[in-house]
């Protein structure tokens, strides 16, 4: 079920589009549901679809097309490290290796305590701050060094 707060937020997004174009709010609505639940279950996707009045499959195909949506449970903190060219040139690989070592997982995996999920990501449009990562899609950390990663992990722990 979508919470009252989630519905209020979705309504604000709906006001951006013509009344007969409720589908246009699906990206925001899925994002709002994901922030609330941590990921998008089949039920959450169906709830979003029902609220917008679109077929479940229309919401699912959006959720599965865009890579910031999670269709399976992830850790409390999802860390997505950009490894594209500008970050690669400034040793994003070293940041990934450091995180893998510290967390004891490989990219794509979640720690046993369910706290961290580690990911590699594509260009985030912030190459001047390379190397960088996103925490739960919305919080960017730039100019990373192994030392800064350690401080960040302590802060999140």
């Amino acid at each position: 079920m979508l919470s009252k707060q989630a519905i209020a937020k979705i309504d604000r997004e709906l006001s951006k589009y013509p009344a007969d174009q409720r589908r246009a709010a699906v990206m925001s609505a899925l994002r709002i549901a994901q922030v609330e639940h941590g990921w998008l279950s089949k039920e959450a996707i169906a709830d979003v679809a029902a609220y917008l009045g679109i077929p479940d499959i229309a919401a699912l195909e959006v959720a599965s097309f865009y890579n910031m949506y999670e269709l399976e449970a992830v850790g409390k903190y999802k860390l997505t490290v950009c490894t594209n060219i500008s970050c690669m040139l400034r040793d994003a690989e070293g940041i990934v290796e450091h995180l893998e070592h510290k967390l004891g997982v490989h990219c794509g995996e979640t720690t046993a305590d369910g706290k961290f999920t580690l990911r590699e990501g594509e260009c985030m449009g912030a190459c001047g701050g390379a190397p960088l990562l996103l925490i739960n899609n919305h919080e960017m950390r730039e100019f990373l060094t192994p030392e800064k990663v350690d401080v960040m992990l302590e802060e999140l722990n």
Partner: peptide, 10 residues
């Protein structure tokens, strides 16, 4: 004028 966000698709 409204803002619309993407969610990870080049």
């Amino acid at each position: 004028l409204y803002a619309h966000h993407g969610y990870g698709a080049y």
